[in-house]
Amino acid sequence: MISSTIGIWNYWIVFCLMMIGLFLVMGRKNFLKKIVGLTIFQTSVFLLYITFGKIKGGTPPILNESIDSIYSNPLPHVLILTAIVVGVATTALGLSLVLRINTEYGSIEEDDISAQDLVDYHDDIETGKSVDFKFKQ
């Protein structure tokens, strides 16, 4: 049990980091913080992949002259390169949405915003503010 635990304890750290990130996404109501949480979450997932790719005593997967060198697995590296870029794309899009939300609502706290939305929604439904047709000639 102990020996096997030593072999995998690294995973546990990675899992803890992941869950902290996930908690930030789900638990926090601040829109910026959620994005930060997402970044942490994704970075930790990258760590998981790279950990899989590691070989004890291996070298980075760049061919060298010595014949008997063991190379770490390049495939996870490639996948994670892709995932990092996908991650930054998500972050950028999320940030731009947060900016727009802040301009429109004056807040980026979910509680605030849903309260405003609720008022808006009821205004529309009950008082029929939006009933006006676009009368065009």
Binding site: L22, L97, V98
Partner: peptide
């Protein structure tokens, strides 16, 4: 409200995709 909708879509979708990636991993 479209902005908030899009934001939620993005975050929830990204979490979903990341969970999928964990599974694949």
């Amino acid at each position: 409200q479209a902005l908030v909708a899009a934001y939620n879509y993005l975050i929830i979708g990204a979490v979903g995709a990341t969970l999928y990636v964990i599974g694949v991993g």
